[in-house]
Design a protein around this nucleic acid. Structure first.
Length: 888
RNA sequence: GGGCGCGUAGCUCAGUGGGAGAGCGCUCGCUUCACACGCGAGAGGUCGCAGGUUCGAAACCCGCCGCGCCCACCA
């Protein structure tokens, strides 16, 4: 529509406007008309593209979802009304562990890659989590796909109910063929360029899922533990001579005698058999006589050296620390930097493994004892072994003092139930460490909303300790597009991976066959073996701009939408999703994936805790939409400022509903069939209101440009309520006074014109927040969707004002509103109705202010039922109200 | 231990150099011709504490206290 049109079609306003049924009515209309279809023909510079966060479909639907997606939708609708071709697809994150877990429980199955595919498989009628049925990997993946399809339908229903303006023809998934192709293609490129590599190394390991995990997937949890002070005895010199390998100053100052004690403190005594050294700080005088000697591990009698390292904190414990392979990440640092041997006792299942006592690396001063003590521990879980070894140490008198109870932070896989361990295994890594400076530079070039969120990114990049481990020993994910040749003995030649050809992608190396081999050669000497792992879910999710935009699949589209304009996401996944997306785009495309990142907060319980899934299930989002209406729920969500956690508050939804109802009724009032001929605003108050509205439009626009939808809403809403409560009341009388004189008719027409012009603007300003009711009121008098109408501009209102605007009109409006308030107060305190007649109002104010009283005097008299309005010069505003006698 | 954010009315929050505000809740009143899914009014606050800068501080600076989040080599 023309930006200043106020005519539109002949208004058709319902007798009793209602919010009921608007969601269905307009939801269907938008879908039918393709209202939100992306226009591929739009020029590049007009495209606004959104890197939509694909929700984890296996998680439960909760109010947090409607919260952040509403923020993005408001911005999308604003940009669309600004004339941008908005690329706003939806994605489903259906790959990864959450789906596997849900499928296991839902169907009562467990994936066993050694089982053969059964095309006729049907899951057990009565699933048992305790006795799951073993199924092949292809069968398992089929079940995952089946369940996620159901979950995705539920999400789509929610998003449609909420009125997200996504183009549903662009939907992508993170397990679909396109995502797999793009993910595998990217990996092969990285492999070719040397950015991906394979290494057998100590790896963070979840013992329940039995998979490697990445640093970014760890979280700290407070756990109680016992601090044990354990005694190591100084070992007798080998061959009766001086301590061997003593490169420390352990000579003249009086070396510790054999049999003397070295005390360490540990919360992980079960790792004593894996001890490879004790360490002290280089400057720690107390340990001087021990450094350079060897000590014997208690119970097991293994010789370990006492060395120094600057990372040791002399203030902690006894100042002497035990290094095990591996108790925590610090052990890995020490092991690497000091060149210590590996002595591993933990298996991938989190139990203590068999140990070849007496073999190289497993020597003992008392082999029989080592074997019998260790036999007490072997096969036990970490916790069981810890309890048992404390008993053994106590019996042997090797614990000094009583164990003290401590609470310490322990690293967990964020989806795991037991602490992560560090296990040596072969994994694939992406190089991140060499790119840290470049990534920091990318982070500085990105516009963050709110800006302080950048600090979290920088902290994370600066705190990285190793390259990104991207392989997972799981099943439902994107495979590595690789096979390995087997030598004549059937051993895997990891150093010579066979990459898939690009036109083969996506491949599943467990069923597909590499070029130059026959299927029968799988697993045979001289044959091949597929890489058994899948990629970390973030290794695929980090490519959402490429997947949504069709990199390598639909290059024309990709060139239109990439780099994208904005990445909306929650602040807790800056270190994972945001960081990895920047990394992948940097490595693959050499650019930032988007110009802006808009961070949203969380929804908190009323008690300020992060809303839990159990509570989220009680208050389902669908239920909220039904109870309050989509616009009302959106209003609550849009009130949450960018980056700020917001309490769940049903009361705010009621407020949103009130606003929607108000828009219905104000629109009905504005569109009443009354004379409005002419095109100028002849009344000062009408012009003043329009001028104020122009300022609000400017502020809402600049707020949206900064992604501050909440500020835009707050300004628009608060002015809209003022407009309804004061402006509408002030001009109502004049509007109905079609009177005898030309002046009265002209004044009435001016109101009607001002009302239509202002309502047209309010409807559009509120459309990004309340899309359903805005579309409804727009449809009463305009053709086409409001969501494709132009965003209001201050210019269209300035034009309406023309050259007629006079100085002092804004003051006149303010004064009229002030006096009206005082008149209402007087009536309220006299317990009289608002229409009660007033004989006289004396307005005391400065001469300057009183000079403009006349501009609004007629309107004011009618609005307050005031007979006489009398100005009285004074220092400041005060109002005397003389009510008429109450009629009997 | 480091970083970031927050602390304003009973609740949720706006307010970044010059009158302490909004909504909800509470109290009172009003069938007013867009709206009883309404309208009007009222009560309610040492702006976390303590210093400093300034003619003037809720806002700017320093310190402290409390809450939350992120990070850390957590022995």
């Amino acid at each position: 529509m023309p930006p200043d049109a106020i005519q539109g079609k002949s208004p058709a306003v319902p007798e009793r406007p209602t919010l009921d049924g608007l969601e269905q009515k307009w939801g269907e209309a938008w879908e039918r008309d393709g209202c939100y279809s992306f226009d591929r023909d739009a020029p590049r510079e007009q495209v606004f593209s959104i890197d939509t966060p694909p929700p984890t479909v296996s998680g439960s639907l909760h109010v947090g979802h409607v919260f952040s997606y509403t923020h993005t939708d408001a911005v999308a609708r604003y940009q669309r009304m600004r004339g941008r071709a908005v690329f706003y697809p939806m994605g489903w994150d259906d790959n990864g562990l959450p789906t596997e877990r849900r499928v296991q429980n839902h169907f009562g199955v467990r994936c066993d890659p050694s089982v053969a595919y059964d095309p006729a498989f049907t899951p057990p009628a009565e699933p048992s989590a305790k006795e799951p049925v073993s199924v092949s990997r292809p069968n398992f993946v089929e079940l995952c796909l089946r369940l996620t399809a159901e979950d995705e339908r539920a999400f789509e229903e929610l998003w449609r109910g909420l009125g997200l303006s996504v183009d549903w023809s662009m939907t992508f998934t993170t397990i679909g063929a396109r995502a797999q192709r793009i993910s595998q293609r990217s990996f092969l490129g990285l492999l070719q360029r040397g950015e991906a590599y394979q290494l057998e190394a100590p790896t963070l390991w979840d013992v329940d899922f039995q998979t490697a995990v990445a640093q970014a997937e760890l979280e700290d949890r407070e756990r109680p533990g016992a601090m044990n002070r354990v005694r190591f005895h100084v070992a007798p010199s080998r061959d009766g001579g001086d301590a061997e390998g003593a490169d420390g100053p352990a000579d003249a100052t009086g070396a510790a005698a054999p049999g003397a004690d070295a005390l360490i403190e540990t919360t992980r005594p079960e790792l004593i058999p894996a001890c490879v050294a004790l360490l002290a700080h280089p400057d720690d005088e107390r340990q001087r006589e021990l450094v350079g000697r060897e000590v014997l591990t208690p119970l097991f009698g293994t010789r370990v050296p006492v060395l120094t390292h600057p990372l040791v904190d002399p203030e902690k414990g006894t100042g002497l620390v035990m290094v095990c392979t591996f108790g925590d990440l610090t052990d890995v640092v020490w092991w690497r930097e000091l060149g210590l041997p590996v002595r591993s006792v933990l298996g991938p299942d989190g139990r203590l493994t068999e140990v070849p006592w007496g073999a190289p690396g497993w020597e003992s001063e008392d082999l029989d004892r080592a074997r019998s003590e260790y036999a007490e521990l072997q096969g036990k879980s970490v916790n069981q072994a810890r309890r048992r070894i404390v008993e053994l140490l106590e019996q042997a008198g090797e614990i000094a003092g009583e164990p003290t109870q401590v609470t310490r932070a322990v690293k967990f896989f964020e989806k795991g139930e037991r602490p992560v361990e560090i296990v040596t295994s072969r994994q694939w890594f992406l190089r991140t460490m060499p790119h840290r400076e470049e990534l920091l530079e990318r982070g500085r070039a990105l516009r963050w909303h709110p800006p302080y969120m950048r600090a979290r990114y920088e902290d994370w990049v600066n705190g990285l300790t190793g390259d990104w481990c991207i392989s997972r020993q799981r099943f439902f994910g994107v495979s590595f597009p690789l096979w390995y040749p087997l030598d004549e003995s059937g051993a895997i030649l990891h150093e010579h991976p066979i990459a898939a050809r690009e036109d083969q992608l996506p491949v599943d190396p467990s069923t597909d066959v590499p070029e130059g081999y026959a299927p029968e050669q799988r697993g045979q000497p001289g044959g091949f073996a597929g890489d058994p792992d899948v990629m970390d879910t973030w290794a695929t999710s980090s490519l959402t701009p490429q997947i949504a935009g069709g990199a390598g699949e639909d290059e024309e589209l990709f060139a239109k939408v990439f780099p994208m304009d904005v990445r909306p996401q929650a602040h807790d996944i800056i270190r994972t999703w945001l960081f990895t997306t920047v990394l992948r785009s940097h490595l693959d495309e050499g650019v930032l994936p988007w110009s802006d990142a808009a961070l949203s907060g969380w929804v908190l319980d009323p008690d300020r805790k992060k809303m839990s899934k159990s509570k989220g299930n009680v208050v389902t989002p669908m239920h909220l939409l039904e109870e309050y209406g989509a616009d009302a729920v959106r209003y609550w969500a849009a009130s949450g400022r960018p980056g700020t956690d917001t309490a769940f508050d049903a009361q705010q939804m009621k407020v949103g509903r009130r606003l929607a109802v108000k828009l219905l009724n104000a629109s009905k009032f504005a569109l009443a069939d009354l004379p409005q001929e002419g095109d100028s605003l002849t009344s000062p108050l009408d012009r003043a209101m329009i001028a104020r509205l122009a300022a609000v439009v400017a502020e809402a626009t600049s707020s949206f440009e900064e992604y501050d939808y909440a500020r835009a809403l707050e300004r628009v809403e608060s002015f809209f309520w003022w407009y309804c409560d004061y402006y509408l009341e002030l001009v109502k009388g004049r509007r109905y006074d079609s009177g005898e004189s030309d002046g009265a008719r002209e004044g009435a027409a001016s109101v009607s014109r001002a009302l239509r012009r202002s309502l047209s603007v309010f409807q559009r300003l509120l459309a990004p927040f309340l899309p359903f009711v805005a579309e409804e009121v727009w449809s009463w008098w305009q053709d086409g969707s409001i969501h494709l109408a132009g965003w209001p501009e201050a210019g269209e209102l300035d034009k309406a004002l023309g050259a007629q605007s006079q100085p002092g009109e804004d003051d006149a409006l303010a004064l009229a509103a002030d006096v009206l308030r005082e008149v209402r107060k007087a009536k309220s305190q006299a317990r009289r109705p608002m229409r009660a007649p007033v004989v006289r109002v004396r307005v005391h104010d400065t001469a300057e202010r009183l000079s403009v009283l006349g501009l609004g005097a007629e309107d004011l008299r009618q609005a307050g039922a005031i007979e006489t309005l009398e100005p009285v010069e004074a220092e400041e505003l005060s109002v005397e109200v003389e009510l008429a006698e109450e009629a009997e």
